[in-house]
Design a protein around this nucleic acid. Structure first.
Lengths: 190, 190
DNA sequence: GACGATACGGACTGGCTACTCCGTTTGTCC
DNA sequence: GGACAAACGGAGTAGCCAGTCCGTATCGTC
């Protein structure tokens, strides 16, 4: 699916590409997606020309950052043991996604605003997470730990909403925990 | 606090100002805050000069739109009868704010991003709602209908988060209702 | 209906930013 | 170590958009 027959990058090119991705992740998260591309290039220690050679568009860079984060989340989600403890696995996954998504909301919004709703790469890596989440959801529902009437779209909406709530609370760890309690308990059947 | 000694606007000026506010509300909600000011002016049937005479800055226009919405919400919230049924009043208020805030999240974000965290007008009208919400919250908590450990910041974060979740679900009314059920039930004590 | 004050329209400006182009540098392979 | 391709840097370009300016139109008043 992903392995095209690209010839290998030269060593410096590969290094710069990785550095750009890392830097872009940090800078976008810290200062928002509105930062000029030039600032990212400078922070990464390269020229803008280099940035645009690797990512032909600012939007492409944004997308690459998102894909990378989604893949990281998917990898962690894959670790969760579903069979033994379906309920915990689902709730752990919910927490995981929310915690790893801190500051990512704005990215998704920016991409959607740019009319990129259906970019293949994003589609692919997000559907991996969705599939995993669906699996854990039905497991937890079968175990009676989650309201049976909830579908995947509602759970995802709650995921996004909870992330936003967390961002709104900032660093108040105790408050975040109380919000988590509200949502997670709310997911349980009455 | 708000009644300054402005001399009355000329009839056409008052008309244009009102039209601009209405149009801006619609256009910002429909197409996001990124729309060029010129587009709003055109949609309102006036020139950009007129727009900038009434609102010296795009940001000022955004703020005026927000203030107006907040005031509308505050007015509705003031109607809710707190004494007779504290629990219902709180939950109704929660719903009210979420439903009236559809599409407003992005405004607030845009304003915050512009470094306008503490504009007096916004502060004032949002603090009206906050005060009302705090009142209803403690009432509901005293009645045993809401978790006693929750503070106003957490409730507001949940409000914002729920609004986002709703926006994410789009027009799926049944799904929205299920999400509401999760959050509102989660607010109740265990 | 005439006159001063108020408000209007929209061409124009300045600044910002995504993206390009090409002379220079660096890595790779023999 | 030399030669060639690959990659780099950053000044330059084009387009967009918030906000200005002033000649023209409209309002309100006598």
């Amino acid at each position: 699916m992903s392995g095209a027959q690209e010839r290998p990058l030269r060593a410096d090119a590969a290094r710069n590409r990785a550095k750009l991705l890392d830097t872009a992740t940090q800078v976008f998260t810290a200062h928002g997606v509105g930062v000029p591309t030039e600032e990212i290039a400078r922070a990464a220690g390269v020229g803008v020309g280099t940035l645009f050679r690797h990512f032909p568009t600012k939007e492409a860079l944004l997308e690459a950052v998102m894909v990378r984060r989604l893949e990281a989340i998917a990898a962690q989600a894959a670790q969760l043991p579903a069979e033994s403890a379906p309920a915990e696995a689902f709730f752990d996954c919910f927490r995981l996604v929310v915690e790893q998504s801190a500051g990512k909301n704005e990215f998704a919004q920016a991409l959607a605003a740019a009319g990129v709703d259906a970019h293949a790469a994003l589609q692919e890596s997000s559907s991996t997470i969705r599939a995993r989440l669906a699996e854990l959801l039905t497991g937890a529902q079968r175990a009676g730990a989650v309201r049976p009437e909830l579908g995947l779209p509602e759970v995802i909406a709650l995921l996004v909403g909870t992330t936003t709530a967390m961002e709104h609370l900032g660093k108040d760890a105790a408050g975040r925990e109380r919000v988590f309690a509200v949502v997670l308990d709310g997911l349980r059947p009455r």
